[in-house]
Nucleic acid binder design. Structure first.
Lengths: 240, 240
DNA sequence: TTCTCGTACGTGGTATACCATCATACGGTA
DNA sequence: TACCGTATGATGGTATACCACGTACGAGAA
């Protein structure tokens, strides 16, 4: 009976009927957050049509989506990749500090063993990859780490907001995660947060989280105020 | 010189070349937040085309925008007005409490006389209209009150987030602002916040703000858990 | 009478055609 | 030679046509 039900369950096709629009959305978003399209770059609709091999209807709807996300802004001559100045970044780090510390504290209060083990697994992966010191990979792990924290503690609305904010500062994050001039490296801070969660200590977890973000913000400030990120076309691999 | 500059300034044509899409966006968004389109209602593209007198291209881009905003969700049979359950609303109130109390405290620390007078004017308007007890008007005033607080204290990113969240719970807010079973009415709480700002007392301002939101959340909970807002098609005028 | 199969219509996905506007470049004229 | 006007190309805004899919309703058979 159960095997039959399982067999029937396995028949299920829940492949989200992936539309051209969704694929194009992911592609373009990735290109923006990875820095392939630098801030200020004009996104000419017909050019994107050729590059992605889809029609303008698709491209336009994707642009509308990304515009609402804040990754694209409409200049008077058309859509461009959103620029990021320190004033915006500062506010984003402030909001992250509020939302993430709240989620982390909440997670620390109610984390059960399965959540803890999931977080531990992610951090172990992160440590393994930290040897290669590949910032994008480290960033993915950090994102997953926080995704578990937010969703397991019932903060999925906040997670959606934070994820969207993070995509706007993703290039900054790549630089801050691996940079050397912070007292404690980013992954180490994540481990501090995890330790506090593991012993169910909300206060310590929130404090570590705030510390982690304020350090990242300070590094971001030096990056953004010295030279605007829009002007220098450094890719994610250009770290010293 | 200054008059000449002013004259030159006044020559400026910054009329946003209002596109059909923007007008349609505003119309549909208003219809949703006002409850004309109830949660769960199917938004059939061609029907909206007829109702607004525009083409499907426009409607589809608007739907994409509102979907990203969270006002519309895509069911498998097409877009529907997003439903709101208590789990989402609770998170939204939590996030508001964090962001608004932070902004209010910041505003209280650095509010100057012009900001204070702007806030006072809004509250005076609100008091005048409170006599009519017209919830939508009161809600507009409350929105403007917070808009001044956020933008004057340099929290415009957070304001964008809060505004978007608020549009998702606008129908709840209409009900909670005027409802009688709260210890202190919503407008009175706003005045408490204002008083704290006027004497530049961040702590008191933040406390009043948190109090205001937690009261609203409690009322919202009784509304949402007794009967889902999706099922009952009460307009904004159905207050007792 | 009931179950099943087929067809027709409605819906969303995609592509394309057309138009208004703006910027730029080229040529003519003072 | 310098300046102005026009023409052309590019770009975004809008409308429409076409297609695939899914659902619902009706007809026919058991």
């Amino acid at each position: 009976m159960t095997t039959r039900q399982a067999a029937i369950e396995s028949l299920r096709i829940d492949s989200p009927p992936v539309t051209l629009r969704e694929m194009a959305l992911d592609r373009i978003r990735e290109a923006i957050v990875a820095g392939t399209f630098e801030p200020g770059t004009r996104l000419v609709e017909r050019t994107l049509c050729d590059q992605l091999g889809v029609s303008r209807s698709v491209i336009r709807e994707v642009i509308r989506h990304l515009e609402t996300e804040g990754l694209i802004e409409m200049a008077k001559q058309g859509p461009i990749v959103a620029r990021l100045d320190w004033n915006d970044a500062r506010q984003i780090y402030d909001i992250r500090a509020l939302l993430e510390s709240a989620a982390v504290a909440d997670c620390a209060s109610k984390a059960d063993s399965v959540t803890k083990s999931r977080l531990a697994a992610i951090l172990d992966d992160l440590d393994r990859n930290a040897a290669d010191n590949d910032p994008p990979t480290m960033l993915d792990a950090a994102i997953e780490f926080y995704a578990v924290i937010f969703t397991s503690s019932g903060h999925d609305v906040a997670w959606e907001i934070v994820a969207r904010l993070n995509s706007r500062i993703s290039r900054l994050r790549v630089m801050t995660l691996g940079t050397a001039n912070r007292t404690v490296s980013g992954p180490a801070r994540l481990r501090e947060i995890f330790n506090a969660i593991e012993r169910n200590d909300p206060e310590a977890a929130a404090a570590a989280c705030r510390q982690h973000i304020s350090e990242a913000a300070r590094i971001a400030e030096t990056i953004l105020t010295s030279a605007t990120i829009a002007s220098e076309g450094r890719g994610s691999n250009s770290l010293p």
